[in-house]
Design a protein around this nucleic acid. Sequence first.
DNA 1: GCCTGTGAATGTGTTCACAGCG
DNA 2: CGCTGTGAACACATTCACAGGC
Lengths: 210, 210
Amino acid sequence: MRYHRIPDETVKRLPTYLRGLLSLSSEHQRISSKGLAEYVAVKPWLIRKDFSYFGEFGTPGVGYDVVKLINHIKQILRLDGVHKAALVGVGNLGLAVLKYAGFKAYGFEIAAAFDIDPAKAGKKINGVTVRHISKLGSLKRRRITLGIVAVPRDAAQETADAMVKAGISGILNLSPYHIEVPKGVKVISIDIAMYLARLPYYMPTTLTAR
Amino acid sequence: MRYHRIPDETVKRLPTYLRGLLSLSSEHQRISSKGLAEYVAVKPWLIRKDFSYFGEFGTPGVGYDVVKLINHIKQILRLDGVHKAALVGVGNLGLAVLKYAGFKAYGFEIAAAFDIDPAKAGKKINGVTVRHISKLGSLKRRRITLGIVAVPRDAAQETADAMVKAGISGILNLSPYHIEVPKGVKVISIDIAMYLARLPYYMPTTLTAR
DNA sequence: GCCTGTGAATGTGTTCACAGCG
DNA sequence: CGCTGTGAACACATTCACAGGC
């Protein structure tokens, strides 16, 4: 292998591979690109190409060592070690995030939660005590650099601004609003309604209610 | 304009444009590609190219008619009219979906909710009465063709199977599992943890906890 | 013989640059 | 003169096909 930058599309698939491999690891020690392909629904040659960007990991005639591959993908995604995240907005969606156990597998821990509603302050959910949003400044001291925005649309931008001010450099934005951040801060947005909005386009016309 | 199929990447951006335009429509009657570009963070030439796939909508020297554009995008995405959706899994995430008001703007209505827990059956949330999962068959009669999967990982595939059997042809999968469906059924999956998993990769190394 | 790794070929998406309309 | 619409150029991603290792 020679020098390669990892294409962005490959980076987007890495979590998919990781999820699949973590799931397979309990039963399989090795897996071929074909076997993994069936499991994660990505073409085998694309899997091989993707993996080839970050080194030679497979054994011709055998396949890939599952554990070795998991560790390498984690390393590339910087998921080795624990990442502490702060949640802002303990509404319905925020609660769901706070109570969700699946982040641990990727090394994430929701270590702080904030809400604008004073009535919610002090409540302990899943081991995390909710604080008032005005206490966001404490994140810098606690070296929490990852933020999850789960506030209503109209509060999204100011929440993001406050997070950046508190030293956050990566934001998962779950609000239905495009937030603007300074260079050096990365935002990934998920607006569930926008995914849903794409669904009718792909559905058979005859069955689609008009 | 001559014949054009709409590229998939363009279809993915249409909901983004729609969200932005809906938001702009209260203040602006017309908008230029440059103006919209700033609002939705997509390059102006890409916006023009995207819009050019489905006709000539702009007026040179002026811009686009916001309302006309909204209607046309809705038509392409088949979001004109109302789409009834069924939610399966009234846990934390399912509840958040059920209580979320933002689907209406795109013409979606959660018209049914199901859970495997008999204790939840009969509860009315946001005007929707939760039924036991065994009642899923009623969807066919009610002509509900859209399903939202919000069940735990291990129940995802069987839930999808049951949905397909009940006549669902479009699934929004919110579970952390890749579900397999027959041809003719479209699945769009969102696994929040997998988006989060990509964040550290893009964050400045010096600040990332290792 | 099976499976990886990878150049080359192909396919798809984005950007440029500008003609032409209002 | 500003702004759209769009071929042409460019950039990027996927697929093919096969040499070479196990």
